[in-house]
Nucleic acid binder design. Sequence first.
DNA 1: ACCGAGCAATGTATCCGATACAGAGTTTTA
DNA 2: TAAAACTCTGTATCGGATACATTGCTCGGT
Lengths: 248, 248
Amino acid sequence: MPRDTGGMARTVELLWGVRTPRGTRGPRPGLSVEAITRAALAIADAEGLGAVSMQRVAKDLGYTTMSLYNYVPSKDQLVELMIDAATPPPPVPEDGDGWREEVEHWVRATWDLYHAHRWVLKVPTVHAPLGPNQMAWFEALLHGLSRGGLEGAEVMAVAQHILASARGQAALAIDLATGEDGATADFGEAMLRLATSDRFPTLHGLVAAAKPGGFDVGAEMYAGLRLGVRLLLDGVEGHVERAAPSRP
Amino acid sequence: MPRDTGGMARTVELLWGVRTPRGTRGPRPGLSVEAITRAALAIADAEGLGAVSMQRVAKDLGYTTMSLYNYVPSKDQLVELMIDAATPPPPVPEDGDGWREEVEHWVRATWDLYHAHRWVLKVPTVHAPLGPNQMAWFEALLHGLSRGGLEGAEVMAVAQHILASARGQAALAIDLATGEDGATADFGEAMLRLATSDRFPTLHGLVAAAKPGGFDVGAEMYAGLRLGVRLLLDGVEGHVERAAPSRP
DNA sequence: ACCGAGCAATGTATCCGATACAGAGTTTTA
DNA sequence: TAAAACTCTGTATCGGATACATTGCTCGGT
């Protein structure tokens, strides 16, 4: 259990660069939060989260391990920073797009984002988007959704719903595609052998039906995500119409 | 990076109790996979995943750390076992229930389940439900959904969608409620301060609107989850009707 | 009964990784 | 120009996972 190396206040400070204005004394700093974050991010992108250790980051930067602690209070915080740093500006909605298209583009972009930084999905603790970039990304989703006509709290609920789905599907897809954790390619085999028709009738049926021919897990799962989102948005439309039948 | 302590084959073996029939020789085993799993589970439930170490589990059982490795090839595998062990038999659909009710009950049960074992949401790598209990739980969802009239692959897609949402919402709710990782109660405050109306107009609006009065995060978020699921199921209904308008 | 194969438990040792702490050297400011 | 405020460094501690060698059962075959 990591100690209270600052709590949320500190995290936020770091994420938003509101660093307590350290005096102008002492030697010229050779490092910076940004440099450290960048280095860590590079490692994670290239070799996975497991390869990111304070020692490793420091070595890549040509400094001592402990020097990092002058800028970042703990590794957990560093990971926090990495996540935000991995998040680019959100997709810009195209001019003619309806709100549904805007949302669907967002979903696609999110899918791609997770694929570009698979390690993000391995970070255990997930909280609300705290950093500026994460927040901006989420804001983009809210923007699209809010055009759909939902009431305040509903927008938030549906947004979280979509975010969770995207994340979950991406995580699964990546896990199935990359045979990392031991959940490997021979997954279908095991499924078929284990999901016997007596104990798991529905599952068995589905797996058996899907069996014919190896298939592209990624594409398959993205299609699934897409379908889910579409159905959800259908539901949203219906809901909005029902609530406010006063529309031209 | 944990070595290949068995791969999925081994994992599955363990989860399903298909242990290679170890000869009948040698001293009477004092431990068992089940006992170890139970002990670990108890620790996690009581003190969180962070408190679970091989040393700790062994100590609780009154054995040496290394003796555990006679039964469980690695800690990762143990966690896998814990997750499956934490999953009880799925909710049984009540007789008069329509398929939507069945699904919604499932969602509720899942929500409760995650709350009963918060640590599960902190396990980084998530794969398809592999263990028998996990599989049974998922099967229950598939069962409900399949009654809705979706086509094979669609059932799977929507099921994963729902599972991901439930998991995501629960994770967030728990994270906000439990001030664990540093994301603490003063969350709303920070939100308001950071989500300025110029950079995050929509978010700002929503947060500001929701502000009046502290509120029950848990209830609030469950309502959100529920709404999302309902809208999704609305979408499913529409989709099914559209696809097969031939129904009494 | 007897012996050796096969296995359970132990104890010890290694190898990280995070992070506390105590200098040593560098600027700045009073 | 000395003290203050820092940045880096080096070293040390504290877990945690897990390899390995050892000890001592216990059973199956004689």
